[in-house]
Design a protein around this nucleic acid. Structure first.
Lengths: 323, 323
DNA sequence: TTGTAGGCGTTATCAG
DNA sequence: CTGATAACGCCTACAA
């Protein structure tokens, strides 16, 4: 019963006789022995842990992403080290290093907040990708090195805008909250649709301050400035809730006077009355795909660096019924 | 420039001359050296990591708790290992072991789902508490061994019920979703208030199925059964949203015909129209307190095993104005 | 102030 | 199939 044998039993080696295996297991049981994870990590140079970075895990969308990521990773017997960076670059760099310094096997950056405008601000991501596999959820790093899985937000918003216009909307506006990677893509989808319909998307897109009351106020000001809109596409459900509240206060009928769409198909879109038409960007699919690709990468397989999938339009009560 | 010197520099020992410290730092920089976390862990027997267990990190309340926990832990240079257990005992046990097997320095069990009815089903928690400090957020383990920080939910619901009655509510009901530790406490607060006002709380408390449409339907059925209520206290904001939707559909005026309160002061309570009166159980306070106590425990200090704090009532539009 | 050497608890390699 | 032994990379006496 040497130390080596114990190790073999622990790792399910088949080169152990049934009798000694039993004996070892028995002693382990009796003595309450637990293998030391650090020593194990030292020898194997892995603790089967992946780092998850996100800007804010309390965000209703990111929270769901984290839920699915952790779940899928655990299924593959990987633990999840969570780290929230906030929205500022220095913290993002710092906490990415923090995770790296703990020798995680891979990094998953959840959310489109990790791609900076300025190319050289992304340098740390390329550096990280040299050390471990880096997965970007809803973000793409120009060039290569990291893997990305993104929802085709541009297409989704384009289709939603097209549909709104087909349903009689003459003057749509687009409300967004930041020009993150997916923010930009949503905006471009909106602009593409408006161009096709002979309108100028840029002029009808607005950066809206955060918060529901702020959104209400913002739309009131827009109205006061004489900017008319009978359709409001929002880049997330919370903004859409603000738009609904604006309509309620302004006495505008939904969807007769004003059609509204959100994005993410979060619980928020269901809490509003009327319930909000939104796009389901399928966080579960995003995460299961990401983790499945990650596992393949860790096994040394070759996987595509870019994966794109499409969102589903969820039609509810803030838009008119087709036909 | 021996290995020991490098170690000393890394650990900020004062027994290193400025010149060699510089030299070491310089070489580390140039060679891109990163200390091996596993080897470090092996020697020190810690990787400064705490395990966070929760039933479901996508739950809007728990997501916030996790956010604050991770943030506070990181401030103290601890990493967070997240693990979602779901609501079944076998998984809870299994994933707790999983975290333990990775030699986390402590465990935080977020949410009141971890205390089982049957005393011996909690045995694994006592076992865990023997190995590392265990912190229960919103849950108390009978006897001792683990630390708990709980919000006085009973008091909060008692006060909300008292207030509703003071505002003219004659027939309040209480809606809850499960009899978890905090579920029970909320229920007891409701019953206490009703008893004081000459009513029977048990008869006016209802276990409501999950989901907003389900809640609406449930209340419609209650009405159909002839159970009258002009006040609805819900054990969480989502249930309260369901109650609001029920009132809207039934054509009952809020708060004139029906007063409604939620719990948690989540974004959901703000998405509803009218905005929902709710109790803020201050997750930030809960988490900063928990982590601060945890740090003290890890430093070997003595801290109280039970901490209780009170919630804040947030008065909004689903209840009548005082006076 | 610096260097040497032993130990932390595994896994992997090699003999037996 | 099993046992001895050398890594793994860091920390920490202890020695210089």
């Amino acid at each position: 019963m040497s130390i080596a044998t114990v190790s073999r039993v622990l790792n399910g080696s088949d080169k152990v006789s049934e009798s000694t295996r039993k004996k070892v297991l028995d002693v382990m049981e009796r003595s309450g022995y637990t293998p030391n994870a650090f020593a194990r990590g030292l020898g194997l140079n892995t603790m089967r842990t992946v780092g998850i970075l996100c800007a804010d895990s309390s965000d209703i969308y990111l929270a769901r992403v984290i839920y699915w990521l952790e779940r899928e990773l655990r299924k593959n017997s990987y633990a999840s080290m969570l780290c929230c960076t906030g929205y500022h670059l220095p913290e993002k760099e710092k906490y990415l290093q923090l995770l790296l310094s703990r020798s995680v096997d891979a990094l998953i950056l959840a959310g489109s907040q990790f791609i900076e405008e300025n190319a050289q601000d992304n340098a740390y991501l390329y550096e990280a990708a040299k050390k471990v596999p880096v997965f970007l959820l809803n973000g793409v790093l120009p060039g290569s090195g990291a893997y990305s899985i993104v929802c085709d937000d541009a297409l989704a918003v384009k289709e939603m805008t097209d549909e709104l216009i087909a349903l009689g909307c003459r003057s749509p506006i687009f409300l967004y909250r930041s020009l993150s990677y997916s923010g930009k893509r949503k905006l471009s989808g909106f602009c593409r649709s408006l161009t096709e319909h002979g309108m100028n998307g840029q002029e009808r897109s607005f950066l809206c301050p955060a918060g529901i009351p702020e959104t209400v106020r913002f739309l009131q000001e827009l109205e006061a400035q004489g900017i008319f809109f009978d359709g409001c596409l929002a880049s997330d459900d919370e903004l859409a809730v603000g738009a609904v509240k604006y309509a309620l206060e302004a006495g505008r009928q939904i969807p007769a006077d004003l059609q509204i769409t959100g994005y993410n198909n979060s619980l928020l879109s269901l809490c509003s009355t009327p319930e909000i038409t939104t796009a389901d960007n399928r966080s579960e699919f995003l995460c299961t795909t990401a983790v499945s690709l990650l596992m393949q990468v860790l096994e040394g397989k070759d996987v595509p660096e870019r994966t794109m999938y499409s969102a589903n339009l969820i039609r509810r009560a803030t838009t008119r019924s087709p036909k």
